[in-house]
Design a binder for these strands. Structure first.
Lengths: 229, 229
DNA sequence: CACAAAACATGACAATTATCATGTTCTAAC
DNA sequence: GTTAGAACATGATAATTGTCATGTTTTGTG
């Protein structure tokens, strides 16, 4: 199910939309389409990347191993995201690992494409800058949440985030299903604490579950809780 | 003590070094030199910035107010740093407040200078990108530290950071003196907890104090502690 | 120099969260 | 369908951290 970047819809969501037709053609010619199975890595922390990944489908968790041996999920990248930009631009090894949370389809774009377009097309450079600026703002917000909110508040926020960014299916269940462990690693807490809080949220009517699927039952309540009421 | 950007040394440390002579001349003609007193703000969270600040001397804390009313310091900007880039580039209101930690000298550079140079000079755009990429990596590291390390470990890291980034005077005291409250806001903890930990570090011989001045007495010990040994 | 305000310090206690132990349920492979 | 292993769940307990109260020291200002 491969196709030309020029016609790719996900491009609309990322900085590649600022490329000219010519530039896109080159990207299209050199890109490599890949399928990645749930649980498999796109790359590991510390690797040298020769390009970026444009996510066509599926979700990847970007995480970093802490010195205490726990994995902290820093970001979830979904359809339209470009992964690996930071390390390609800084010409550094990656500071994060990327693992597929569910089956993914991605296009690998060699870094030469990116770097030469940055040199020649200021609109593209500015578009990339805007995206990076946005990521930086989000990272700042995460820092504040991590340090100033309780675990309970952060779990509540995590579910609101999942609804906002990945939506719900027709039954109202969150489209993206994460394991309790993954949620704990997003929130930065022990898996048991996370499970406990989810149980509590069920009892209090904030959440509903059916197997692994989770549904937000009281969004207002969760929001209030996340704000500290 | 004003002067021409072309001759300014601090420019070497930031993205302005990628500007051409002509571009620098324009910046120099339109920049405004300002002195900011300890404790005074450069700008407040939510403001619209009409330009960036190039720090010539002194230190500014960049912080964000949490919903619980506490201020979280996200970054400390020192000589050579450019403050406000993110929000000028994203054309958004600032997500952080900037307050002078000690007396500062800064040059305010109107955003038109920055934005037009970004459009015309790819080297400058790439240089800015590199800096932003670096900031983003640091932010990721902070996220991991905040969520996976104990308060004690984070306090230890904070002092190592202060030594690394601001150095020591000839007596071995940290050059940058922060109040206990500021340190607590960097580390993301209660002021009392921070004070308690500093006292403990003194007792254990990791730190030495003389009035408000703090000296790192056992760097190896602090490092081990920060790593979790 | 005096004195008020801010910063620093410490104790007592409560709340939050992690850890360890153990049991149950789900799931994928045979 | 069995069955082993993973994921989920919960209790008990300990460790960490925050909060409130109170006292001391430092600092800046008239």
């Amino acid at each position: 199910m491969e196709s030309r970047c020029e016609n790719c819809i996900v491009r609309q969501f990322n900085s590649l939309r600022a490329m000219t037709k010519d530039e896109l053609k080159k990207v299209s010619d050199s890109k490599v389409y890949k399928k990645i199975k749930k649980g498999d890595p796109l790359f590991e922390e510390g690797e040298k990347l020769d390009g970026v990944f444009c996510v066509r489908d599926g979700v990847s968790k970007l995480s970093k191993l802490s010195t205490n041996g726990k994995d902290q999920v820093v970001k979830l990248a979904t359809k339209g995201s470009v992964i690996g930009q930071r390390s390609v631009i800084a010409e550094e090894h990656t500071n994060l690992s990327a693992v597929a949370v569910n089956d993914m389809e991605v296009c690998f774009v060699p870094k030469e494409n990116i770097l030469s377009t940055l040199q020649r097309n200021p609109d593209f450079a500015i578009e990339v800058l805007r995206h990076m600026a946005h990521d930086l703002k989000e990272a700042d917000d995460v820092i504040v949440n991590m340090s100033q909110k309780t675990v309970k508040q952060r779990v509540a926020e995590a579910f609101l985030y999942l609804k906002q960014n990945f939506g719900e299916d027709n039954k109202g269940f969150l489209r993206l299903t994460l394991s309790r462990e993954d949620i704990a690693n997003v929130v930065g807490t022990a898996t048991e604490s996370c499970i406990r809080i989810i149980s509590e949220f069920k009892k209090k009517g904030y959440l509903d579950t059916s197997g692994k699927k989770i549904k937000i039952a009281d969004e207002r309540g969760l929001k209030d809780l996340a704000q500290g009421f």
